[in-house]
Amino acid sequence: MANEEGNSMTTPVGPLGIIAMRGCEEITDKVDKYLCEWRDDADQGTFQIESCCPRFSSGEGKGLIKKSVRGHDIFIICDVFNYGVKYKMYGMEVPMSPDDHFQDLKRIIAAAGGKARRITVIMPMLYEGRQHRRVSRESLDCATALQELAHMGVTNVITFDAHDPRVQNAVPLIGFDSVQPKYQMIKALVNTYPDIKIDREHLTIISPDEGGMSRCIYYSSVLGLDLGMFYKRRDYSKIVGGRNPIISHEYLGGSIEGKDVIIVDDIIASGDSVIDIAEQLKAKKVNRVFIFATFGLFTEGLSRFDEAYKKGLIEKVFTTNLVYRTDELKSKKWYREVDMSKYIAFIINTLNYDRSMSELLDPVKRINKLLGKLKK
């Protein structure tokens, strides 16, 4: 197996098994294809283990694994934000909520019956990840969910761009990794725009708020770019949709006139904030506005992004294929999908052979190699 990470083979922890929860079939098929190309120990040409979570007409469900997993090193891929998956309850077709997906995940873990040698959950966008801290009398849903998984025997949790990685403090005795898709984002930008000039005179990184500064500092330091930030002024006297509404965004940083800018964030929900920031950047006479967001939820639809694109506020939105994307979104001129399936395959292969993930988690070498090719 030719592995670009340069690791030699060792003995695997156990026979590899991959379980795709509902809605994750597409990306799991791609991951499985890579692993089958690299390895020769696939059972009948696949590492996937068939499972299902059938529902009764009342909405109750159960988990079923259709093959023995005794002694296996199991990886369960779960997208808890896939609202495109539906089930019938009392004759009605109901889209699955994050709660429904998480419950099905626990059903599959329970169906394994403790027979697997090890269970790793790959949950790209962490369940209840934005409910990670307590500011009043409220629940700590993310911490509770992680503790449930640990109690059920999960050994590792792999997530991407966690809203606050410190939530792992809730489960200090199991593995927890928050993987960043920085290399893949930069590679997608370079492939889409070969004319892009990555230097201080032509490109600037923008953080949409103070909470995303650490994410943006990495980009600016590795790429050698200046960094700007927007400060969110909120109305703390009101709560709208569970949050204090944003009054305005205030820019903090140097001159960006005539430059391309990259707004880097973890999530696009409604998109109001990022479009407002793009509008303010255009008022400061920037050139092109690119948006990097690990997860594109687009909870309020795509029309406001269509309008922003027509006005010239945004050039391209890059999001990963780690969560559900509609066919309509994929067809948009302003959208570019960043495929993470090969990266997930590397993670699974590395963990199955019980090797260090340090090089996978720190992509500086790959980014520098990519920049070297771009300069040539």
Rank of each mutant, 00 (worst) to 15 (best):
S8P: 02
S8A: 11
T11C: 05
P12K: 00
V13N: 11
L16G: 02
A20F: 01
A20K: 04
E25S: 14
T28Y: 06
D29K: 13
D32Y: 12
L35V: 10
L35T: 05
C36M: 08
C36I: 12
E37A: 13
R39E: 08
G45L: 04
E50S: 13
S51Y: 00
F56A: 13
S58M: 12
G59F: 02
E60Y: 06
K67C: 10
H72C: 15
I76K: 02
I77W: 00
D79C: 12
F81T: 06
N82F: 12
G84Y: 07
H101W: 04
H101S: 07
G113T: 14
K115P: 04
K115G: 07
K115S: 14
A116I: 01
V121C: 14
M123Q: 01
P124M: 06
M125Y: 13
M125L: 15
G129P: 00
R130I: 02
R133D: 05
V135G: 10
V135M: 13
E138G: 10
Q147L: 09
T155Y: 03
T155N: 14
N156E: 15
A170I: 09
G175A: 02
G175D: 12
M185A: 08
Y193G: 03
D195T: 07
I206S: 00
P208T: 05
G212D: 07
S214D: 14
Y219T: 05
Y219M: 06
S220V: 09
S221E: 15
L225D: 11
K238H: 11
G241P: 07
G241I: 01
S248H: 11
E250N: 13
G253C: 04
G253A: 05
S255W: 05
E257R: 14
K259H: 03
V261E: 07
I262G: 05
D266N: 12
S270H: 01
I277Q: 05
A283G: 15
K285W: 03
N287D: 14
F290S: 06
F290K: 04
L297F: 14
E300F: 02
L302A: 01
S303I: 14
E307K: 01
Y309L: 08
G312M: 01
L313H: 03
E315M: 11
T319P: 05
D327G: 11
L329C: 01
W334N: 02
W334Y: 04
Y335D: 11
K342C: 09
Y343M: 09
D354K: 14
D354W: 03
R355F: 10
R355G: 09
R355M: 14
D362E: 12
R366G: 08
I367M: 12
L371Y: 09
K373A: 09
L374D: 03
K376Y: 11
